[in-house]
Design a protein around this nucleic acid. Structure first.
Lengths: 211, 211, 211, 211
DNA sequence: CATGAATGAGTGTTCATTCAT
DNA sequence: CATGAATGAACACTCATTCAT
């Protein structure tokens, strides 16, 4: 019977614990920030006691890093891989990448991490350093590589790589901040469709790079 | 009477207390964040005792709100209004506006308020609403007006006003966030010169809008 | 009236706080050991709240060090000074010193600190190091100086300074351990009179050093 | 039957469990003290799981008591009895006894028990009583018997038996405490050789007793 | 009004102990 | 019997807030 295949309860739970805790932590960190999230709350939301949390993650900071690895680092790595396998014009690759980034990361709950980091970096320097190393640098490199690819193929010209990379990334961050900060969210006015905004922005950039 | 013109030192000080506290609080909130700033520090920097702080502001949260309100109003009334009397090509106006914004606001301590707001908005919904009303909307309107001016004069074409306005504003916000968040500060790579970055970005946008 | 001379209540209490806390801490550390003494208990015994303790001492370890300085270091320093001013035969000085040590330190509650240190040194290396530096080394030096003084004057001969110093000190420590450890306390048998024991021991040593 | 003589491995292990746990606990208690020793560590060193420890000992405190009882009894029955059959001068017997005590007990891991007892006696009054009865009294009696033997034979004169016995024992305890307590360990100065120290001390005592 | 001594609820983390498997 | 996942009480230390002076 199928019953036979189901492992004993304890064992099954044990394997799911880290995932459950990570999910609870993601929710709460995004919702309330790092400092304001109490470890006991995380445990409670995952349905376990405070002690259990520390059985799986040695500290609140390590829990946070695990959340980042699970949700953000993964997204970057996926992007990098996808880019490496792309055949076609760089302007297409750039646009694809920007839209894929939104679909895969920006539009999800996980993008709240980015807002969190920007907000609390000064209070938690170690977390900030970790995030730079694992997320910011790889992401910037990805964008710059695409720009160089375009330059090599004669598609992109007359641009400053670092500045242009920032010009490409900044609206994406802006979208995230909008999404997660009530202050920037245009509740009254028509909230722009993010994918459309990204597409337009990509076009604007590409047009600018082509002359 | 002389009494009225030259109040005794203590009296004058007393009237300045709230302002001094607000200034000290701004510095510290910007530097360390809301949670990490201790009320005693604020009092000390303002040269008064802990108790006095609570004499003027009933709680740390209220102090925070006062800091935001005090500085936001200033920034807006000064900045946005000044900008609208320009004669000449819209592409020049746009560039001027962006650079002036940086010089007058982005590069000053006051820009820390923007970071504060964005970081803490979720914990203080009233602040978020206030900020939108007083800052976001007027600023967006200004940018959109310039874009429309350019369209009328045949300088700018083929663009979506809202999206382009966001594309213009987002790198400026990005610069602010960079300035105030360790996480985005490119310690390893060459930290880009903000004015150069803005100029390049303005050019990129203008080029994109001209075809 | 005298009333006029009495300073305001708060002020007077503030000046007495450290002393009250130090006394409470001494009691509890001696009674229960360092690890087993909770900071809240110390505060409670001194009649203040937990927070107040940390207003005067930055940590439990610093509180302990202050207790040592107040109670033990003082005793050593007094001994050193007294020794320096002594005129007379070294055998008399040695005996005086040992008896004075008992009267001034060994017989008091403060001697419990010595037992505490010996017991918990391994768990709190920093405290152990502090105690060695501030107490053990100076005390050993004092004893060795007296032995050398005796050798110079031809009173003491044929001895190994380090070993003899230890032979002199060890029974004093033994008395302390007896006093503070139920295990060594001869409840059934006649508990020997410490001063007599020290006198006899001093004689034994002096006799041994004279041939 | 063979079954009785060679029990299956598991069975044999099971019977040895308490002993293995006791040994592991001894090591760790001596090394790190009672409070600082985690029960999981004890179990791990004994090669069993945390749960198993509590199967054999209902609590950490009971484990501690068992460790003390197990080891103290051994040390006494072996040591004290062996010592009484000496022929020759009492001063030789005394010296022999002291050195033998060091070789057989003081220098071994087991001496850590003495330190344990003295350190924790106040928290475990029953243990203190037990230790006095089984160790302190017999040991004191042995020493006093030797002193009386010396007095009878005209070797030792002019001494107070109880006090002298304590003077003899205290440096031995001092050595143990030195060995097991960082606080008394003279890291800076030359750490004295224990056997030499004991020999010197014995000589000092004997010299003192002979005049 | 201003002070700063005093408070005590709150937080991350540890670890002896339990109990379902 | 043995396991080890789970528990939750405990503890040092912080800091916004109060209030006697």
């Amino acid at each position: 019977m199928l019953d036979t295949l189901i492992p004993p309860k304890r064992e099954r739970r044990k394997q799911h614990r880290p995932g459950e805790l990570l999910e609870a932590a993601l929710d709460l960190f995004v919702e309330k920030g790092f400092a304001a999230t109490k470890s006991e709350e995380v445990a409670a939301r995952a349905g376990v006691s405070k002690g259990t949390l520390f059985l799986y993650f040695p500290s609140k900071e390590e829990l946070f890093k695990a959340v980042v690895r699970e949700n953000v680092v993964k997204a970057v790595t996926e992007g990098v891989l996808e880019a490496a396998n792309f055949k076609g014009p760089s302007r297409q690759l750039l646009k694809n990448l920007m839209l894929a980034w939104w679909r895969r990361y920006g539009s999800t709950k996980a993008s709240g991490i980015t807002k969190l980091i920007i907000s609390e970096a000064n209070s938690f320097p170690e977390l900030a350093a970790f995030y730079q190393e694992e997320v910011i640098f790889p992401a910037m490199k990805l964008v710059k590589d695409v720009l160089e690819r375009g330059r090599m193929q004669g598609e992109f010209k007359n641009f400053h790589t670092d500045h242009t990379a920032m010009a490409i990334i900044s609206p994406l961050l802006f979208l995230i901040m909008s999404k997660h900060s009530t202050a920037l969210c245009h509740e009254g006015s028509a909230q722009p469709n993010p994918e459309e905004f990204i597409a337009q922005h990509a076009d604007l950039i590409v047009r600018g790079l082509s002359i």
